[in-house]
Computed example of a mutant assay.
Amino acid sequence: MAGRRGVSAEEVRAAVVAVAPWLRGEADRPGRAEVAAAVRLSLRTLEQIAPGSSVEVRVPPFAAVQCVEGPRHTRGTPPNVVELDARTWLLLATGLLSWDAAMDGGAVSASGTRADVSAWLPLVRIDGS
């Protein structure tokens, strides 16, 4: 999105580390604000490293971004859509879950020829944090 401030690696890492125990199954789900921050910052990171408008990645109810170079989408439902829940997105973003495993398990809805965003994942590693 034009005019949006960039996200620093430290900023996204701090937000994701804050929810890491939940992602690892070691704690209950954190508060909505913590989950929202981790989702939004990690999605904005994807938007920064894979600029474009051909794929829309949706993590309701927290955020959606357009990314990946290719034909620009402007109206109606985009032809390339990835939709998933917050925990699945964060597991993918941290490398705790592979794209193939998420797809095979039905945790990700991906439609369109460009909807595979696995080339940009993981966004931040939390191993050993």
Results as ranks from 00 to 15, higher is better:
2 A>C: 07
32 R>E: 13
45 T>L: 15
118 S>H: 05
94 T>N: 07
46 L>F: 09
124 V>R: 00
61 P>M: 13
112 G>A: 05
45 T>C: 05
100 D>Y: 09
109 S>W: 00
8 S>H: 07
126 I>S: 03
120 W>L: 03
7 V>W: 06
108 V>W: 12
30 P>R: 00
79 P>W: 01
124 V>Y: 02
92 L>Q: 12
119 A>F: 09
15 A>N: 10
112 G>C: 03
62 F>A: 09
1 M>F: 07
34 E>D: 14
107 A>W: 13
125 R>V: 01
42 S>H: 08
65 V>G: 01
80 N>C: 02
69 E>V: 10
83 E>D: 06
74 T>R: 04
60 P>A: 09
122 P>E: 06
77 T>L: 08
85 D>Y: 09
89 W>A: 07
119 A>E: 14
87 R>I: 05
62 F>P: 02
83 E>M: 11
54 S>D: 05
9 A>K: 11
82 V>P: 10
33 A>D: 15
10 E>I: 04
106 G>A: 04
80 N>V: 03
79 P>G: 03
87 R>W: 10
76 G>K: 04
62 F>G: 03
31 G>Q: 04
30 P>G: 04
129 S>D: 15
50 A>S: 14
112 G>S: 02
64 A>F: 11
123 L>C: 05
26 E>W: 11
13 R>M: 10
54 S>N: 00
116 D>Y: 00
38 A>E: 11
82 V>N: 05
72 R>D: 11
47 E>G: 01
20 A>K: 14
43 L>V: 04
112 G>N: 03
127 D>Q: 09
12 V>I: 10
103 M>D: 01
15 A>P: 12
47 E>Q: 13
112 G>I: 00
54 S>Y: 00
32 R>N: 07
37 A>C: 02
87 R>D: 14
60 P>C: 06
46 L>S: 06
70 G>T: 01
99 W>S: 08
13 R>K: 15
78 P>C: 07
99 W>Q: 12
13 R>N: 09
123 L>M: 02
20 A>T: 13
88 T>C: 11
4 R>Q: 14
36 A>V: 02
82 V>T: 09
42 S>D: 10
106 G>P: 10
14 A>N: 13
109 S>K: 00
90 L>R: 04
112 G>T: 02
29 R>F: 04
57 V>F: 11
25 G>T: 12
17 V>Q: 14
50 A>W: 06
4 R>E: 15
56 E>F: 01
28 D>Y: 02
67 C>I: 05
44 R>P: 04
99 W>L: 08
62 F>T: 07
31 G>I: 02
27 A>M: 08
86 A>W: 03
10 E>Y: 08
85 D>E: 14
103 M>N: 01
82 V>L: 10
9 A>E: 15
107 A>I: 01
31 G>W: 01
47 E>K: 01
53 S>T: 14
30 P>F: 06
34 E>H: 05
63 A>V: 08
89 W>L: 12
99 W>A: 07
53 S>H: 14
42 S>P: 12
20 A>Y: 08
61 P>R: 10
45 T>A: 10
